[in-house]
Design a protein around this nucleic acid. Structure first.
Lengths: 141, 141
DNA sequence: GTATCTGCAAAACATTTGCAATTCT
DNA sequence: AGAATTGCAAATGTTTTGCAGATAC
């Protein structure tokens, strides 16, 4: 995604596009690797020598508060971030640790939510083994 | 649930039914309130003066490792526990903070998982407002 | 009597906070 | 200059670890 488009998206959500914010959003939208705050920091810090982890945390919190990124809480003690706000599920491979997106057929879910409940947010999380790690497992067992 | 049945369940999963383990499992299965480790500790400590938080953590980890309890990671920085291992979703009310179970119609979900992926675990988490908190909101707005 | 379980204290780790320095307009 | 943003250092809160004492069979 181009620099201009990133700036546009941030401004559309009322966020001033500072250098750090642009870089962090660019990273999320281009890499699509569902990083933790720490992973973002480690990736960007070499290119932005003054970058601090606090800024990464501040920025992610800001992004999340205006719904330009979502939090993925698929494993305890690590929050991951995703700039793809379209409806999809997340699968974490217990082998390689990667997180994969998967489609959710929109009509296919019926929550059976009780009367009067107001739904705000929904997440579908799965764990298991991706096709690569799955075949590795077979060989060793 | 009776003390005998609790002991039976723990033994069926290869867990020695110590006094602390029985109390913790009893609490989870009878209260069904999806507590954090800290909530369990605070509830049980008065009745078990020597109980330590370490034991609560150890016990929950043991229970989870043999699938007698599941972890609920619906909000960052708090893991909750549920002794109900039947398939169901979890809804956290952003007003009162309570977690509600809801049914998942079993045929209603189609993950569209890629070829060769091995599914181990799946969770559906929702947030929003329960009927009580939802009507309170309307009044104040 | 030996293996297991428990619990204290300290450590580890991710995230937040207070505040001063920097940047932007 | 004035307001917002950044970043350092310290604090916070939860979970883990090391190890010694207690317990169970």
């Amino acid at each position: 995604m181009s620099n201009e488009k990133v700036i546009q998206i941030l401004q559309d959500h009322g966020i001033k596009p500072s250098y750090q914010r642009i870089k962090i959003y660019e990273y999320l939208i281009n890499e699509k690797n569902h990083p933790t705050a720490d992973m973002i920091y480690r990736e960007l810090a070499p290119g932005i020598p003054t970058l601090s982890k606090t800024t990464v945390y501040n920025t992610l919190k800001l992004f999340n508060s205006v719904d330009v990124v979502q939090k993925i809480m698929i494993e305890e003690n690590e929050v991951r971030f995703d700039a793809d706000m379209n409806k999809h599920g997340h699968f974490k491979c217990l082998g390689c640790g990667d997180i994969y997106d998967f489609p959710i057929k929109s009509t296919a879910i019926d929550y059976g939510m009780p009367e009067g409940f107001e739904l705000k947010d929904e997440h579908i999380y799965c764990t298991g083994y991706c096709s690569e790690c799955s075949s590795l497992q077979e060989k060793t067992s």
